[in-house]
Amino acid sequence: MIEQLRKIYPSLLVHTNENGNLDTSYKWYKTAANAIIGIQKAELADKDQALLAAFLVPYDIKFPPMTEDEQRWKKAIDQAEGPADSAFPVLTPYRFIYFSMNKNQITPVFFHEALQELFEKPVPILWENESEGIIIEEGSLSEDYPSYEQMIDILMSDLYVKITFFVGPYQKGFDSIRAYYHSVIRDAKKVFAYSDKTVITYIDAVPYLLIDQADPALRQALGKNVLQEFIDDEDTLKMLETFVQSNLNISETAKELHLHRNSLQYRLDRFFEKTGIDVRQFHQAMPVYLAMLAKK
């Protein structure tokens, strides 16, 4: 069929992964055999387009065509139950990285092309919609390659788009891959409601996820009982949050907040005097941190 069409439309191209992005000056279609073909728009009158759409599926070039690897992963995830195809050749642990971008600012094709350049080998990307999806990372990132924080800066400067990543935990095997896929997306959406960080790992997210499970009465009680009279004292809460995020390190916190060490010590002492909680101790700092999250 492709050859017959080519006789009518000499510009016809068959897309392969080797020839990169889909050219926007072409109109793209998917055949019954899943081949992606393109015909130069200049060659197509409205009548031609209507005719071609009757027996081919117009192919949305916002999304890059799925690679074989991506198709395999998608198939494994879409299987309702049980392990994926035994031919699936993944020997190393893998993890899913959720990404989200501002809507309507770049096409998935651009993002896909730029992102692939940041990894050692092509990574499968499964799109949820035009601004969200999952990157599948097999094995761990080599030190020679950028971290997810660095990737954000590179992509922001090239693509002018704000990106966030939620890095899921490593998995082995496929028994619960479907549940894992959906939990990564669900957890990502929860944690970005609590934090303004651009990269959050699953481990970082655990406190957020725990608090998110708590019922409103418990959340309210945590704030009231732990933070006590400081519950609405934004300066103290900011100080405590920074102190926890700085590994309970006085110097680092003082530097971060542009406070003198002595002023910080004084404020921590004051919090201790008023609440009886010594946040210099990890086991006392943790409930304070959870209470602050509960308040958010």
């Binding site: 309507n104 770049i106 350049e117 940041l118 950028p146 924080e149 660095q150 954000i152 800066d153 400067s157």
Partner: peptide, 21 residues
């Protein structure tokens, strides 16, 4: 106006580059 149409160029803290290129 979309960021790409504002005629700006940005440099961020991380000066990482595309490693293959």
């Amino acid at each position: 106006v979309s960021p790409k149409d504002r005629d700006i160029a940005m440099v961020f803290q991380n000066y990482a580059l595309y490693p293959h290129m």
